[in-house]
Design a protein around this nucleic acid. Structure first.
Length: 202
DNA sequence: AATGCGATCAACCGCGTCCAA
DNA sequence: CTTGGACGCGGTTGATCGCAT
């Protein structure tokens, strides 16, 4: 409430993107680059919301995207990162060059959740499912913000998991990837260790 | 061959955060 | 310091596909 809509909904298309819309968006970004998503649709001659354009570009049109099945290595990395970071899909995607947060989120919900369940692991807590002591494994969702990497008692989610967090650039062979500066998300932005600014500068 | 149902993926929505004025 | 606009993120929905009956 009180929040202005992100765009004029009466004059915007919704739903699946057409080839022509894709081409227009790609052509525009090739010339002008990303950014200023709010004004982009008009400038590109698209009857789309800026957010919609951004999503389409980020998730499907970017040239550095890696399409196709996830490898076992990627599976395991996602599981490890999720145990650390929770549902921070953009952070997880930052460690998987060529993968998007939306893609990983979908993949988690459709594949990995089931994979963990079949292993007897709780996909939320990454701890073994214990049917007897149900309160421990399937605890109420009130504290399930999934973002801390630790339980409300302060203990690590996965104490038995060797998470040495060697999650820096996992694939150094992808110069076009956009490494996410963890400083920003960890509240350390601008600190001495933060490389956002340097990385941004040409 | 037709239908039902579950799985998958693309897209939308609302909210939180950042940053310039 | 405050405020409002823009961006980015995570959750959720809806359409489509493929398999089983």
């Amino acid at each position: 409430m009180g929040r202005s809509p992100c765009c004029e909904k009466e004059h915007t298309n919704k739903g699946a993107w057409t080839k022509e819309e894709d081409q227009r968006l790609i052509a525009y970004i090739r010339v002008n680059g990303e950014g200023c998503w709010r004004s982009l649709p008009k400038a590109a001659g698209l009857l789309r919301c800026g957010k919609s354009c951004r999503l389409r570009w980020m998730n499907y049109l970017r040239p550095d995207l890696k399409r196709g099945n996830f490898t076992d290595d990627e599976d395991e990395l996602i599981i490890r990162l999720h145990s650390l970071l929770g549902n921070k899909w953009s952070l997880i995607a930052g460690q998987l060059p060529g993968r998007t947060d939306n893609e990983i989120k979908n993949y988690w919900n459709t594949h990995i959740k089931r994979k963990l369940l079949s292993r007897g692991m709780d996909p939320h807590t990454h701890r073994p499912l214990t049917p007897v002591d149900g309160a421990a494994a399937s605890r109420p969702s009130s504290s399930d913000d999934g973002s801390s990497g630790a339980t409300s008692t302060g203990e690590p989610r996965c104490p038995d998991l060797n998470l040495d967090l060697s999650v820096g650039p996992p694939a150094a062979d992808t110069p076009t990837s956009h490494p996410v500066c963890l400083c920003r998300h960890l509240g350390l932005r601008g600190g001495a260790a933060c490389s956002c600014r340097q990385a941004d500068s040409p």
